[in-house]
C-alpha cells in the first residue's frame, strides 16, 4: 500500500471513530435530556407557591409537600453531618497514615464491599441496629444513621482517590520546609484534593437524598400533621412520598407526584451544579 493510501485509510478510520463515539455520547445526552424533560413536562404544572409551602391534603391528592421537603432536607443534612467528617477523616487516614499491610487491605476490601450492599439491606440493618437495638425508634436520627452507613464508603473512596491524585512532590515540599505531617495534610494536601472530595461527597449525598429503601423501615412516614420537631421525630420524605402515593393512594394525582419528583431532581441537580461551578473555578488554579 502506498503512503498516501495508508494516510487516506487512517483518516477514514479516524472519521468513523469520531462519528461512532460522537453518536454514543449524543445518545447518552439524549436519554438524560429525555428523562429530565419528561419529569419537567409532567411536573412543572404542580410547582407553585402553595405546592411548596402547604401541607398535603386529601392524602396527598391535593395541597402541597412542604413537610415532605423539610423531612428530606433534615435527613440529608443529618446524613451529611455524620458522613462527611467520618468519611473524610477515614479517607485521610487510609491515604496518608495507614501502613501498607494486610489490615489496611482488609479495611479497604470491607469498604468496597460496603459500597456494593443493596440499599434495602441497609434499611433492614438500620431497623435492627438503630431503631430497635439502639432504641432511637423510627426517627430522623435512625434514618440518617442508616443513610450514613450507605454513603460512607462512597465518601471514603472519593476522599482517598482525590488524595492519591495530589502529587507526592507537594507533600515532600511541605515536609522539607519543616511542616509536620498533620500541617502538610490540612494546609496543602486537603485543599488540593478538595474538588475531588466535594464532588464525591455530593454524589454520595445525592444518592442518599433520593433513596427510599433505607428510610422505609427507619423513620419515613406517609403522613404527618406537622414538620419534624427534633432528631427523634418521624418524618416525611420526597422519594417515600412518591412511592406511597403511587402504591397506596387510589386515584393519586399524577401532576403532584411528578411535581414531587421534579422538586427532588431539581434539588439534587442544584447541589451538583453548584459543586461543579465551584470545582471548575478551582480547576483553573489546580492542575498538575
Amino acid at each position: 500500500m502506498s503512503g498516501t493510501a495508508r494516510i487516506r485509510q487512517a483518516r477514514a478510520a479516524e472519521f468513523v471513530a469520531r462519528m461512532v463515539l460522537g453518536a454514543m455520547a449524543a445518545s447518552v445526552v439524549a436519554v438524560a435530556l429525555f428523562v429530565l424533560g419528561y419529569i419537567v413536562f409532567h411536573g412543572i404544572g404542580a410547582i407553585d407557591w402553595t405546592f411548596l409551602t402547604q401541607i398535603p391534603k386529601d392524602r396527598g391528592r391535593e395541597g402541597g409537600i412542604f413537610p415532605v421537603i423539610v423531612g428530606t432536607v433534615y435527613t440529608t443534612l443529618g446524613t451529611a453531618a455524620l458522613t462527611l467528617p467520618i468519611g473524610i477523616l477515614a479517607g485521610v487516614y487510609l491515604s496518608e497514615y495507614a501502613p501498607r499491610n494486610y489490615t489496611t487491605r482488609a479495611i479497604r476490601l470491607a469498604i468496597t464491599n460496603m459500597a456494593g450492599v443493596p440499599s434495602i439491606v441497609y434499611g433492614l440493618f438500620g431497623l435492627a441496629a438503630f431503631v430497635l437495638a439502639a432504641g432511637f425508634g423510627r426517627s430522623i436520627l435512625a434514618a440518617a444513621l442508616t443513610l450514613t452507613c450507605m454513603t460512607l464508603p462512597v465518601v471514603i473512596t472519593a476522599t482517598e482517590e482525590a488524595l492519591r491524585q495530589v502529587p507526592q512532590d507537594l507533600r515532600q515540599a511541605s515536609l522539607a520546609l519543616g511542616a509536620t505531617r498533620l500541617r502538610t495534610i490540612y494546609r496543602v494536601v486537603l485543599p488540593a484534593a478538595a474538588p475531588g472530595i466535594i464532588t464525591g461527597s455530593i454524589l454520595g449525598l445525592a444518592r442518599a437524598a433520593g433513596e427510599t429503601a433505607p428510610i422505609l423501615f427507619t423513620g419515613a412516614v406517609f403522613q404527618m400533621r406537622r414538620t419534624p420537631d427534633g432528631p427523634l421525630s418521624q418524618f416525611m420524605a420526597l422519594p417515600y412520598h412518591i412511592y406511597a402515593q403511587v402504591t397506596s393512594v387510589p386515584g393519586w394525582n399524577p401532576t403532584l407526584v411528578w411535581g414531587t419528583a421534579l422538586v427532588l431532581v431539581a434539588g439534587i441537580s442544584a447541589a451538583s451544579i453548584a459543586a461543579g461551578i465551584w470545582r471548575s473555578a478551582q480547576r483553573r488554579k489546580v492542575t498538575w
Binding site: 515540599a173 520546609l177 496543602v188 488540593a192
Partner: peptide, 25 residues
C-alpha cells in the same frame, strides 16, 4: 528541616498564591 531547606528536581510550588508559597515556611 527549617535549618536545611530543599529544592526539588521538578518545580513543585503549592497550589496557592505566590505570596502564600513563600510565606508557608
Amino acid at each position: 528541616r527549617m535549618r536545611v531547606g530543599q529544592v526539588f528536581q521538578r518545580p513543585n510550588p503549592f497550589p496557592m498564591s505566590i505570596f502564600d508559597n513563600v510565606a508557608y515556611g
